[in-house]
Every structure is written in structure tokens, then in C-alpha cells.
Design a protein around this nucleic acid. Structure first.
Length: 987
RNA sequence: GCGGGCGUGGCGAAAUUGGUAGACGUGCCAGACUUAGGAUCUGGUGCCGCAAGGCAUGGGGGUUCGAGUCCCUCCGCCCGUACCA
């Protein structure tokens, strides 16, 4: 035994090349050693051609910003790494990759300022990121690293764009198909049996007409059907960034990145028909394991409303008598989407067609295309004034005062097709141009906004349901009761009424049941440099795909990263950049979400040059089992990814409808900012600043200023360092301190950011405590999903735990050297006792349950308990410690890897080892036999195991329960014993 | 407004999903070893009470032998979203 432990010490010495082992665990040396070892031995490369079951754990890949990682970033990465390492121990073949979303605005903004190529900046940032990530000891297979800005990667982003361009959406089959199937339909039957998602206002034609068209004509028609298409669209234009933004990139009327104002502008843009997938994006949510709140966010974003579309004929004029016939004119049938030129009716969308007899006025958005033509001369001035005022109000203002009622009468009327009533037409900015048809049939008795409007303009309020209550005071949107004042639906209930009305409308071509979505097609063009070039050139004004063999279409060099003098995007500056030397390329680039909408497939086969990922690799890895990332991508990346995935599925490239089976949103780690307080009026115009300590403020007029958290410890400011940090501001500063001479700072929880001086770099924690402690501590902080401020209050406890763990293996001798004290039963040492095995197996069980439930914080606690108890039991037995090392290894890979080797195992083999099997028998401390008596005779004896002996009282109380269950013909599986009370006989 | 989540010691948080509330960690108190402690170890620590005991999971009510957990109601907080017809 003595010999054995000596050998291990020798081995450790060889491994680390140190003469004496220090008395304590030396994390710097150990961690460096194993990180290099994993790198050199490709320890975390998944097996190829294996029959093992796969498990794919993915992190949302980061954008490599110049600020580097802060302690908040690794939170999700640590969790996913724990799951990866655990799943490997459980015998899975685990794919756990990392890469970078390396196209993006900050590098380009920096390039504009400095002239440095974004690729250079990006490369520098990447190097730093990789270094920081490796420092924490993640088990990524770095050989699979990808970068979206790498031409070998974006070649395939461009290829997918081309595939989308080469596809159309067939509503008949409810999937995307190659454009050829559409061409075939056109050639054989014209547009007759084509049911496609396409541009509004496409015209119909026969096969003969189609076949007679010129190539150019027919090509032009296909452009209206392709899943990527050019369109003049009102887009979010951000002048400061010089580009358009997608809806999800705009928050509160300003750009998400940078917070610059955004305005609406009509521009020719590449678009993607994501709306074709609206329904599948919605229903697919029911099949995936994401949080309810995230699914709900996507549902809201898609915004499906089931209702009806109704046409209200426009009356000839205010005074004019209406035409004969009463029922209004039947308009172009079959009911097709209106061409913008048709001005004979107003089309509205409503979810409550049943309230149509309650319509007393019509409201159009001020931007509505009919607004101008409907305005009668005597109302012209008022309407112009209103429309202009609405234009001037920013999106923000408009949303801000939702209570004020405003609007203006146009002087025109339309006709309610059901009762031939004249309905006055108003303009009001509570109606949005971008939703539905930009027109609302107003039912003041059933809708509060309509009610407010009616009161304000003194318009009639007609009750339409006998179930409506108190509509003199407010609207009642009930669906209860029977209809009154409602012509053909009088006496009916909600369901009957709706069917009747829609049937009536459809018969006459005046309307139809309709489903409306809030989601718009996605704008795909960005007038920027640092993104994927769009693989399109223009010939005679029409867009064509470049030849596939010319992929990747690489970013050309430009002299400046600004738009050209003529207002074209930066790519317009590229000298002689022409397709085949003669055709103009598309000058916009793809949006940030393009590269991230398929990247999880590239990891499966990252070097493939002939396809985005081989069939075999996709068939094996399939989709992502566990995806961890922030909730901020709810309506961006996570929606676009699902869209592209569904498209790739339709076209047969990938096997599953949904890319991410389970998704966990890690909570944000907030910063804890520190403040110093400068006395007002000091520190300006050459006066010396006076800083007041927190408890000395006492009503003084002070300005709080952020101070770098790294020069504050336990809320005490290091005054000297503070003075040195900004000598310009603080050279001759005075400090009003606490009586004990310390300067106390204030604190506040804020988002962690450079500008708030509250960024904590994980490297600093790693240097001080080690990566294992950082990992354990971040998990220990609280539930993964929860947002929490960063504080290091408990980190010493975790640090103590690691050292305590170490001391199960080593003990200091008289010379202060660490001595290996693990005993080995195979060479004659004492065997593990039942008490020790119980402690161990409780930890095995807990770890297994907790990781499967993604409850990492409680898992860390149970390690601490286990180690504490083993220390108390003075257990240094190999059989126990070897298993303990295994169960802890997902959390603290460095120290456990070292001890694993020290226990005599092959270095690096821990990732291939098996997770210890939990044996519940070790938890049993007693068996409990209970004789069952029926009619006074012992009929049988039930025996079961419990984790401690029951008291006499407990035995008695148990009796009733057990007999009861036994008589019911069920035998107890588990009995939980509670002192004094008893119960829970689980059948 | 609507949707989702939550409310437990000084603090971060546990609670086998209806079964000894507060595990574990911090913090605090005491002790040991120390010239010293911001090192290490040991013990204590929800509240009231000397104690026996009583009271405690935002407030109130209910179901149950038993409720932090389930139901109703009120209050408060966080996140998302918003004139969506």
C-alpha cells in the first residue's frame, strides 16, 4: 500500500514537473496542464462511425466583441459543459462544439472610425475569446470551430439563400418545393391549380399564355413566387447606422444596437417569405421542450388572429343616394387579394364579425391609401392637418399616450353590406397601417377603444347582444347571450352567428373567413459591408443567381466602409467588382441572422467543401438535443432558425421539422455597480473634487459616479488606486471618509457593461481561485434560469470545498509536503464501510437526478455534503474516492482529472469512463417487516426497506395505512417514515 | 391592458412534488490553535421565551389526518408585450 501511494506521487511529479507538491491544491499548474493535454489529445472529439447513441449539446455561439467575455457569459456554457461531460460518462457520443457569429456591426463601426478591416479586428477579438474560453476548461471539440465570416462557411449561407430563391411555397402540399414544380404547373395548367404564397396582386394566366411568354416575362413572374424576393417595402431605416433593420432589431422605435432613431422608408429590398411558415412556426411550438414564456413570445410575435375579412362598399358621397339593389355591389369574384387601384370599397379585418350590426363608424389609419381620395373638400384642411400631425409624431409618442382620443372625419361614408346603413369614415392614429388592412370597422358597444372614440365624437352605440352589460359606461366584449338589433343573426348565439355571417359574405363575394398574422416577411438586405454578400447579379434590371461553382462570393476590398457618394452601400466602392466582368452584383449584404440560422448543421461536418454538411453526418446527429442561450433571441435568431430549418426539411436536406428539441434560457448575470459620491459644485472649473463616503452623505447634495468595481473590496474603496486610476479627475481629491478612515461606496444592480465599470473578467477569478471554483461557483449561485447579480460573497465557500475535497486524497506531513493518503482495498487496505457507501451513493443519485433536471445549484450542495461527511468519516478509500471523482468531474474537470490520474487511471480517460451506477441498496439501513393480520390471523408478512429504523409509534401508525392498501390489493413500493406521523405508502 | 413567472431567515437559496420547513453556502456569535488573523478547525444561529412550549413560508379563507406545495381571493415584485381591430 505504501508503495502504491509513493508511485502515484512520483507520477504526479512527472506529470507536473514540480519537485514538491505544495501543501494545497495548486490550481494554476493543474489547470494549465490539463488544458494543454486535452488540446493535444483531442480528448473531446466525438467518435466517428459509432453505434453509440448521439447527444448534441449546443451553446448559442457568441459575437466576439472587443470587450471580451465577462463572468456572465460563461454561465450557460458551464451548464452545457456539465451536461456534455455527464452525458459522455453516461455512454453517449456527445457533440459539443463552439464557434463564432463573427459578422456584425461593432467591428464595422470600428472599421469606419479607424479604417482597419473588420476582419482584422474580428480576428483579434476571436483570439481573446478562445483564450478566455479555454481558460475555463470547456470540453469543446475545437477542431469543429466555425466562424460565420469565414468564406468557407458563408459559402453555404449563400448557398441556402440560393436554394430559397430557387423555391416556392405550395400551400397545397404545405411545403416549399423547387421552382421547377411551379414552372411545370404553369406550363400545363397555367395558374389554375396553383395555390402559392406569393406577392399580392399576381395576375392569373393560362398555360397557353404562359408558354407564349418571353423568357424575360416568365422569369419576372417567377420572381413573385420565390421564397426570397425583391420588393419595395416600407422598412425600418436607421440613418445613423446607414442600413435597414428587421422588426426584431428595433426596440421602442430605436435600433437595438446603438439605440439610434429608426424611421419608416420605402426601399427596394431582398425579403424572405417567412410568413409562408407562420402556421407551422406556431404549431411546431407544441412539439418542443422550451419554456412557456419563450413559446408565448414567439406566438405573440407571429400573432395569429382568426376572423373575417369584410368589404364595405364606399358610398358615392355624403348626400348622394345609394344605388338601387340595396345589398351593395358584388365585387370581382372569385375573391382575390385586391389590387391597390380598386377604390370602390374598404376592406377590413375583424375577429368579431358577429358584431357587424353594431358598426356605427369606420376608422382608417392616417396612412391608409384611400385616406386622401375619401376626404371631401370641406374636410380637406382638417384631415391634412391631422395626417401631418400623425406623421410628425414618432412611433414612440404615438404609443406613449394611448389614452388620448384623436381622429378626424373624412366627410365620406361607406355602406354596411348587411343592413345598408351609411357608415361615416374617420381617420385616427389608433389604427395601424401595418396591421390587417389598416382599416377597422368600429363597434363601440363591444370594443373599448371604439367606445371611447364614439363618446368623444358623439357617435351612436348600438347594443348587439342581450348579454352585454352597462354599455352606457363602457364597452362589453362578451360573446354571451343572443343577438339583438342584428338582422339575419337575431336570436342566434356567437358560434351560429359567425358561421352564418361568413357564409353570407362568401356567397356574395363580399368577404370570407380569414386568418391574419402580425408577423411580416423578413427584410433580408443590409446596406453594410461586414456581412455575407448576396450571391446575385443584375442583368437588364432583373436579379439572377450567380453560378453555384462561383461560390463563395467573397467580400471585395473597399477603400472605406461608408456608403458611396451616390448613396449606395459600401460594396459599391469595390473597384471593378463585377460578375463575369460585366454584370453588377447586388450591393447589399445579408443580415446578422443569416449565418446563425443554420450553423448547428455546420458543426456536424465543418470542413465539408461539397455540401453544407454530409447526409451521413446529418442523419447521425439529426438535431440539437439541448440548446442553452439567452432569451433575447426569442423573436430573432430562434424564429429565423426554425424557419430555415423547416425550409431545409421541406427540400429534403435535414430530417426534422424542429432544430432545437430542448431549450434552456440561462438568466442574465447582472453587474453590481459601485458608486462614489462627489459633492455638487466640486471637481469643476479647476476646483478639487470632494468625495463623500456613503454613510456621510446625510442629506448633502452629491452626484453619484460609477467607480470601477475592481478597485473596491467589500464596498470599501481603495483610495490610492482610485486616485491613480483617473489622475486627471482625482489628483488633488479630498475624501470625507467614515470615522474609521474607510471610504464606503454605494452599490446598485445593473446590466454588466464596460460603461458602468462593473465588468468582472472570468480570467481574474480563474487566476485567483481556479476555473473549477469559477465553474462550481457560477452553478452554485442559484437556479440557472434565474437572473442574478454577480457577487463573490460565497466563492470562498466553494474554494474551501475544493480544498477539502483535495484533502481526502492528500495530507501534509511534518515537512509540509503533501502525502498521498488514499488506501486501496485491492492491495490489502480496509474495504469501504456501509456508512461510506451510503454517503457516496446518495451523491451519485443526487447528481444524476439533478443534472437530468438541470438543477445544478442543488447538485453542488450535495457534493459539499458528501465531502463533508466523508471527511468526518475519515474516509480515504480508493473505491469510494474513485467514484466520487467521476461524479464530480463534470463540474470540476481539472482537479478531478488530476486525481483520476493519481488514482492510477490512464490520464484523459475520465471522459471515456462510465458514470457510477447508483445502487439504492446502499441507502438502506434497515428492513421493516410487517405482519398483516386479517380477522385476527396473520395471513402474510410484507417486508420493505427503509433508510432508517422506524420507532414503535411509527410501526403502529404504519399499520393502518398498509393494511388499507393491502386490502385494496396493492402492495407498497415505498414507505416514507416520519416521526410521530407516518405515511406516504406509495403503491 | 394582456401573457408568462414569482413571493420562504440578515443574504444566495433548499424542500424527495402533499409528509420533521429553512438543506448547502454566506453572514453573524462563541470557542480552539495562534504574536496576529481577512488562515484553519469546532460548536451555535428563523422569531418569542430562562425553560417547558408557542409562533413562523406576502395577507385572508378553503380542501386534507397533514399545505411552502392544491383551490379561491386580495396585496406586492420581476420578465415579456402592447392602440393587433
Amino acid at each position: 500500500m505504501q508503495l502504491f501511494s509513493c508511485l502515484n506521487i512520483e507520477r504526479i511529479r512527472r506529470l507536473y514537473g514540480c519537485d514538491t507538491l505544495m501543501a494545497d491544491y495548486n490550481h494554476s499548474k493543474t489547470e494549465k496542464y490539463w488544458q494543454d493535454y486535452w488540446d493535444q489529445h483531442h480528448t473531446f472529439k466525438p467518435e466517428e462511425n459509432t453505434t453509440k447513441q448521439k447527444y448534441y449539446v449546443l451553446d448559442m455561439f457568441p459575437y466576439p466583441s472587443g470587450a471580451g467575455l465577462h463572468v456572465g457569459h460563461p454561465l450557460g456554457y458551464i451548464a452545457s459543459d456539465i451536461v456534455s461531460r455527464y452525458k459522455r460518462l453516461k455512454g453517449y457520443n456527445v457533440l459539443h462544439p463552439m464557434g463564432f457569429d463573427s459578422f456584425g456591426l461593432p467591428a464595422e463601426q470600428y472599421a469606419i472610425q479607424t479604417g482597419q478591416h473588420p476582419a482584422v479586428t474580428t480576428e483579434q477579438n476571436l483570439t481573446r475569446y478562445i483564450e478566455q474560453l479555454k481558460n475555463i476548461g470547456f470540453s469543446y471539440d475545437w477542431s469543429r470551430e466555425i466562424r460565420t465570416s469565414d468564406p468557407s462557411y458563408y459559402k453555404w449561407t449563400q448557398w441556402i439563400f440560393m436554394e430559397l430563391f430557387r423555391s416556392w411555397y405550395n400551400k397545397e402540399t404545405d411545403r416549399a418545393e423547387p421552382i421547377e414544380t411551379l414552372l411545370h404547373k404553369f406550363a400545363t395548367n397555367g395558374t389554375t391549380d396553383v395555390n402559392a404564397v406569393c406577392d399580392e396582386g399576381v395576375s392569373s394566366f393560362t398555360a397557353a399564355e404562359w408558354n407564349a411568354m418571353s423568357t424575360r416575362e416568365s422569369y419576372e413572374i417567377t420572381l413573385k413566387y420565390r421564397l426570397t424576393f425583391l420588393a419595395d417595402a416600407v422598412v425600418n431605416w436607421c440613418p445613423a447606422l446607414g442600413t435597414v433593420l428587421a422588426n426584431d432589431e428595433v426596440k421602442d422605435g430605436v435600433s437595438e444596437r446603438g439605440g439610434y432613431p429608426v424611421e419608416q422608408k420605402l426601399m427596394r429590398q431582398w425579403m424572405m417569405r417567412i410568413t409562408a411558415y407562420a402556421d407551422r412556426l406556431l404549431t411546431g411550438l407544441d412539439t418542443i421542450d422550451w419554456t412557456e414564456s419563450l413559446k408565448e413570445q414567439q406566438r405573440n410575435w407571429i400573432g395569429k388572429s382568426v376572423g373575417a375579412s369584410v368589404r364595405f362598399p364606399i358610398s358615392g358621397g355624403e348626400k348622394e343616394e345609394r344605388e338601387e339593389g340595396g345589398k351593395g355591389k358584388a365585387y370581382s369574384s372569385p375573391f382575390s387579394l385586391s389590387a391597390p387601384a380598386d377604390r370602390s370599397f374598404i376592406e377590413v379585418f375583424t375577429t368579431r364579425v358577429d358584431t357587424i350590426y353594431g358598426v356605427t363608424f369606420m376608422v382608417l389609419a392616417p396612412e391608409h391609401e384611400l385616406a386622401a381620395t375619401l376626404t371631401t373638400p370641406e374636410h380637406r384642411d382638417a384631415v391634412d392637418a391631422y395626417v401631418n400631425a400623425a406623421k410628425l409624431r414618432s412611433e414612440r409618442d404615438r404609443v406613449a399616450d394611448t389614452k388620448a382620443v384623436s381622429g378626424v372625419f373624412t366627410g365620406s361614408y361607406c355602406i354596411n353590406p348587411f343592413n345598408d346603413e351609411l357608415v361615416p369614415i374617420f381617420l385616427a392614429d389608433y389604427v395601424l397601417a401595418g396591421y390587417g388592412t389598416g382599416a377597422v370597422m368600429a363597434v363601440p358597444s363591444g370594443d373599448q377603444r371604439d367606445w371611447n372614440f364614439a363618446k368623444h365624437f358623439d357617435l351612436p352605440i348600438i347594443p348587439i347582444l342581450d348579454g352585454q352589460k352597462g354599455i352606457d359606461n363602457q364597452a362589453d366584449n362578451t360573446k354571451e347571450g343572443q343577438y339583438i338589433n342584428s338582422g339575419i343573426i337575431n336570436g342566434m348565439t356567437y358560434k351560429e352567428a359567425t358561421t352564418t355571417l361568413i357564409g353570407w359574405l362568401e356567397e356574395r363575394g363580399l368577404g370570407r373567413g380569414k386568418i391574419n398574422y402580425r408577423m411580416r416577411d423578413a427584410v433580408f438586405s443590409r446596406q453594410r459591408y461586414w456581412g455575407e454578400p448576396v450571391p446575385v447579379y443584375f442583368k437588364d434590371g432583373l436579379p439572377y443567381l450567380i453560378d453555384e461553382s462561383d461560390l463563395p462570393l467573397e467580400l471585395p476590398a473597399v477603400d472605406k466602409y461608408l456608403p458611396t457618394e451616390t448613396g449606395e452601400p459600401p460594396l459599391g466602392r469595390a473597384e471593378g467588382w463585377k460578375y463575369k466582368g460585366e454584370y453588377e452584383y447586388e450591393l447589399s449584404t445579408m443580415p446578422g441572422w443569416a449565418g446563425s440560422s443554420w450553423y448547428w448543421y455546420r458543426y456536424m461536418d465543418p470542413q465539408n467543401d461539397t455540401t453544407f454538411a454530409s447526409k451521413e453526418s446529418i442523419n447521425y446527429w439529426q438535431n440539437v438535443d439541448l440548446y442553452i442561450g439567452g432569451t433575447e433571441h426569442a423573436t430573432g435568431h430562434l424564429l429565423y432558425s426554425r424557419f430555415w430549418n423547416k425550409f431545409l426539411r421541406d427540400r429534403g436536406y435535414v430530417p426534422y421539422e424542429e432544430p432545437f428539441k430542448k431549450l434552456i434560457n440561462q438568466g442574465m448575470i447582472q453587474g453590481r455597480s459601485n458608486f462614489v459620491y462627489r459633492l455638487k459644485g466640486t471637481g469643476v472649473e479647476g476646483t478639487a473634487p470632494i468625495f463623500v463616503s456613503l454613510n456621510q452623505i446625510d442629506g448633502k447634495d452629491v452626484t453619484p459616479l460609477h467607480v470601477d468595481v475592481n478597485i473596491v473590496e467589500n464596498d470599501v474603496l481603495n483610495i490610492d488606486t482610485f486616485k491613480q486610476s483617473r489622475p486627471d479627475l482625482t489628483e488633488d481629491a479630498e475624501f470625507i471618509t467614515e470615522p474609521d478612515g474607510r471610504y464606503l461606496v454605494g452599490a446598485e444592480v445593473e446590466k454588466m457593461s464596460k460603461s458602468k465599470y462593473n465588468v468582472v473578467n472570468p480570467d481574474d477569478i480563474v487566476e485567483k481561485y481556479g476555473a473549477d471554483v469559477l465553474r462550481l461557483y457560477e452553478m452554485f449561485l442559484g437556479p440557472l434560469e434565474q437572473a442574478k447579480p454577480w457577487n463573490t460573497n460565497g466563492i470562498d465557500g466553494v474554494y474551501r470545498f475544493i480544498r477539502k475535497f483535495w484533502r481526502l486524497f492528500y495530507k501534509d506531513n511534518a515537512e509540509g509536503e503533501s502525502q498521498w493518503i488514499v488506501t486501496d482495498e485491492r492491495s490489502g487496505g480496509p474495504a469501504a464501510t456501509p456508512a461510506e457507501l451510503k454517503v457516496l451513493h446518495r451523491a451519485i443519485q443526487k447528481t444524476e437526478n439533478d443534472i437530468e433536471a438541470f438543477s445544478f445549484n442543488t447538485s453542488v450542495s450535495s457534493f459539499m455534503i458528501c465531502v463533508n461527511e466523508l471527511a468526518t468519516l475519515n474516509c480515504h478509500k480508493r473505491a469510494v474516492l474513485q467514484d466520487l471523482v467521476l461524479i464530480l468531474s463534470p463540474y470540476a474537470p481539472h482537479i478531478t482529472e488530476e486525481l483520476w490520474a493519481a488514482l492510477g487511471n490512464e490520464p484523459g480517460s475520465i471522459s471515456k469512463a462510465q458514470f457510477p451506477t447508483f445502487n439504492p441498496n446502499y441507502l438502506v439501513e434497515d428492513t421493516f417487516e410487517y405482519p398483516i393480520q386479517i380477522n385476527g390471523k396473520v395471513r402474510t408478512t410484507i417486508s420493505f426497506a427503509i433508510d432508517r429504523a422506524p420507532t414503535d409509534i411509527e410501526r403502529e401508525v404504519l399499520a393502518d395505512e398498509i393494511v388499507q392498501k393491502w386490502l385494496e390489493g396493492k402492495s407498497p413500493k415505498k414507505v416514507v417514515v416520519v416521526p410521530k406521523r407516518i405515511v406516504n405508502v406509495v403503491i
